[in-house]
Design a protein around this nucleic acid. Structure first.
Length: 283
DNA sequence: CCATATGTTACTCG
DNA sequence: ACGAGTAACATATG
């Protein structure tokens, strides 16, 4: 479920409440949640360690520990990090519990069980292949532009590729393409410099807005996004195309269409985001 | 029963 | 090598 803005919101809501706390006890209910380590090793490394800092890279939450290890967590589709008091009951789909030294406990809950923890002393093993942070300093137009012109892939598939730009998922990809007025199936190399620049800016824009709105919470099912304090985001009210199939485009009132691109449900305005079949490599 | 779901990766085919 | 498509992971929902 969570894309960059949702993960960022979780990190912001957790940071002050768990930084500096010591891990007293770890319970693993579902060992497959641990991507590169056994439950025994996981408990041994975490127990007794202090949480030095909390940060985010792409869609990963990063716990920096006092014993030189880093704990990474990727929530995939339905993972949730919930901070509760230690006496809170273990409920359905709670897979990992990390008890701190102050009566708080981090509950990792994941309906679909796709999310994964990683423990390592070398962050680059997990983060090495990721593209630039779209809201970071390494995000620059010349690099972005160059990569777009070099591939024939559809622009939607490229935006979802975490080695191109890190942190976009299905929602913010559709929103950025709408804002830049680009058809999701447009071959990346066929985008004019104007369009590449518009997209470069739109990505920053939709992500910044998503964070300001504390994430996108769709529906009220178990898999829906909430922050670590059970708070829903409000960005769903600001979406222009995603989950708005059949509703009017905010720009031109044409009905939003849905199709499948890059194996994902894809929402777009057929009038504002026209596919351009004549591909001359514009500059 | 069927399709779909905020993610990623391995695999096949052309 | 590249890119598209599919399956897989596992569960819930309409």
């Amino acid at each position: 479920m969570p894309e960059l803005p949702e993960v960022e919101t979780i990190v912001l809501s957790l940071r002050d409440r768990i930084s500096g706390k010591k891990i007293n006890k770890v319970v693993v209910q579902f060992e497959k949640c641990l991507g590169n380590i056994s439950a025994g090793e996981f408990k041994k490394i975490l127990t007794g360690a202090k949480i030095i800092s909390l940060s985010r890279r792409a869609k990963y939450i990063i716990f920096e520990l006092s014993n030189k290890y880093f704990l990474f967590l990727h929530l995939r589709m339905t993972g949730k990090v919930l901070l509760k008091i230690q006496s809170a009951p273990i409920t359905k789909h709670d897979h990992v519990m990390i008890y701190l030294n102050d009566n708080q406990c981090i509950f990792y809950n994941d309906t679909r069980k796709f999310g994964r923890f990683f423990v390592t002393q070398s962050p680059e093993i997990v983060l090495g292949k990721l593209g630039p942070e779209p809201l970071g300093e390494d995000y620059n137009f010349s690099n972005f532009s160059q990569k777009i012109t070099k591939t024939q892939r559809t622009i939607k598939a490229l935006l979802l590729d975490q080695t191109f730009v890190a942190g976009l998922g299905n929602i913010y990809t559709d929103e950025a393409l709408w804002m830049a007025k680009i058809h999701p199936e447009q071959p990346a190399h066929s985008l004019s410099k104007i369009k590449r620049k518009a997209l470069f800016e739109a990505i920053k824009c939709v992500l910044t807005q998503g964070i300001a709105n504390r994430g996108t919470s769709l529906g009220d099912g178990q898999g829906n996004y909430t922050s670590s304090d059970h708070q829903s985001g409000t960005n769903q009210h600001s979406l222009k195309v995603f989950a708005r199939t059949g509703s009017p485009c905010p720009e031109c009132r044409t009905m939003i269409q849905k199709s499948v691109v890059a194996q994902r449900g894809t929402h777009y305005c057929p009038k504002c985001q026209k596919l351009k079949l004549i591909n001359s490599k514009a500059t």
